[in-house]
């Protein structure tokens, strides 16, 4: 594993983040520190609140307490589009694309946002060369250029997952959140997805939810274990899998089933 020796800077920092839905408390003071440039996984048993954590960071849900900082600035309470513009992009566990638009257009929507063309009404988009070239570039990086003109809804599942990752790249964010990017994939598809994630997150900060421990081992610098709304431990994958507390709470449980 390549650990950074340069002074550690936090890309994403969560301090005592809590969340409750009515009486039920789902996040009980989460502290998480994702260093700039690292690949960081969140693992945990079902119902531990991994997706909720992502929804809190990306602004889909409002936190009940605590603070979330992105690159040193608080993003607590901002709406999703403001958080995105601050430099954080996310994918979704359930594929969340524009089904009736072409693959190319799916990606171009994000590229347009990055260039600040959010209300462009006075120029045809086909003439915006820089934007279209950049879209082609991302299309190639996720390996979907043969499918550029197909409707996104007509893609295979793993292609849609690749598109899902491509869309998180379009807005130029340097912190990427991927929610179970390999869920439901075959072994070969997973291997390809891991390579794709590795190459596209080069030089960026990655925080991902992942169930597949082999993916976590091959991809991530550090792992945080989330159990019932709080972080049990954060360490390298090797040391996490050796951690007895973690084994009891999570890995042991999985080994037992």
């Amino acid at each position: 594993m390549t650990r950074k020796t340069t002074p550690r800077t936090s890309a994403l920092q969560l301090t005592d983040v809590t969340k409750s839905f009515g009486e039920i408390s789902v996040m009980k003071g989460v502290n998480l520190d994702v260093e700039a440039g690292e690949r960081h996984a969140v693992i945990g048993p079902n119902g531990a609140g991994k997706s909720t954590l992502f929804n809190l960071i990306s602004g889909l849900f409002a936190v009940s307490g605590g603070d979330i900082c992105l690159n040193g600035r608080s993003i607590t309470g901002l709406p999703p589009h403001r958080i995105n513009r601050s430099g954080l992009a996310r994918s979704f566990q359930i594929t969340n694309i524009f089904h009736r638009l072409s693959v190319f257009e799916n990606l171009r929507i994000g590229v347009l946002a990055r260039h600040g063309v959010r209300f462009g009404l006075f120029q045809p988009v086909s003439r915006m060369r820089a934007i279209n070239e950049e879209t082609v570039d991302i299309l190639e990086r996720v390996g979907l250029e043969p499918r550029a003109d197909h409707l996104a809804g007509d893609l295979t599942y793993s292609e849609q997952r690749a598109l899902e990752i491509g869309m998180t790249l379009t807005t130029g964010a340097d912190v990427i959140l991927l929610d179970e990017p390999t869920a439901g994939m075959s072994r070969e598809e997973t291997a390809k997805a891991v390579e794709l994630i590795r190459s596209v997150t080069e030089g960026k900060t990655l925080l991902m939810v992942e169930h597949d421990m082999s993916v976590v081992f091959s991809l991530c610098d550090r792992v945080s274990v989330l159990v019932y709304g709080s972080i049990l431990a954060t360490d390298t994958p090797e040391r996490i899998s050796a951690n007895r507390q973690v084994q009891e709470a999570y890995l042991g449980e999985e080994a037992a089933t």
Binding site: P79, H81, F98, L101, E105, G110, G120, L121, Q123
Partner: peptide
């Protein structure tokens, strides 16, 4: 002409998936 502009394309994206539009940085 509206349908050919960036905003015209965004209009279709909103129809398909408003949530994703928000997470791509649009209000």
């Amino acid at each position: 002409a509206y349908t050919r502009t960036p905003f015209g394309r965004l209009t279709l994206a909103l129809r398909d998936n408003e949530q994703r539009v928000r997470f791509l940085g649009y209000n």
